[in-house]
């Protein structure tokens, strides 16, 4: 049986929002310019030098042929994952098994991006044999 979304769990702030993930991407794109001082998105008001630890990274997982590819991935804490649906039917990305977080329905061509601090297993709740997982280094 597919796991139902539990609304109260959606309040968890552990997972950054899409907006933050996007600004993190923008941030990492800018950090190549060494002469610039940039504001840390999670730490407003202060500025930091570009002598930073590894900037957040984004990995891509392709959804195709009723599978997540790669099915297993190792990322660093705070990295983002970008799922893109290149299949011919709609899918979703749902934390397995409790459904702590869930993407909207992804039509062919749609994508979903989220940053993570913890390892997780996930699946497509529409097609429960589709499974994937990622581990934090």
């Amino acid at each position: 049986m597919p796991i139902m979304n539990k609304p109260h769990l959606m309040n968890k702030t552990k997972y950054t929002t899409l907006g933050l993930a996007l600004s993190a991407m923008l941030f990492s794109a800018c950090s190549g310019n060494s002469s610039q001082q940039v504001a840390h998105p999670a730490d407003t008001g202060t500025t930091v030098n570009t002598q930073l630890p590894a900037a957040p990274h984004t990995d891509t997982i392709e959804i195709k042929g009723m599978a997540f590819n790669p099915g297993e991935l190792t990322i660093s804490k705070g990295d983002s994952i970008f799922w893109i649906n290149h299949d011919i039917v709609a899918h979703n990305v749902t934390q397995f098994p409790q459904g702590h977080w869930k993407s909207p329905l992804l039509q062919p061509g749609d994508h979903f991006i989220q940053a993570f601090d913890d390892s997780a297993s996930y699946y497509c709740s529409i097609h429960p044999t589709m499974r994937g997982k990622f581990l934090i280094k």
Binding site: K64, M66, A67, D87, I88, T129
Partner: peptide, 16 residues
């Protein structure tokens, strides 16, 4: 290509 990509969908439905 479209027919080929329908196959895994149908296989999944058959399994279910």
């Amino acid at each position: 290509g479209l027919l080929t990509s329908v196959m895994p969908v149908l296989e999944h439905h058959l399994h279910m």
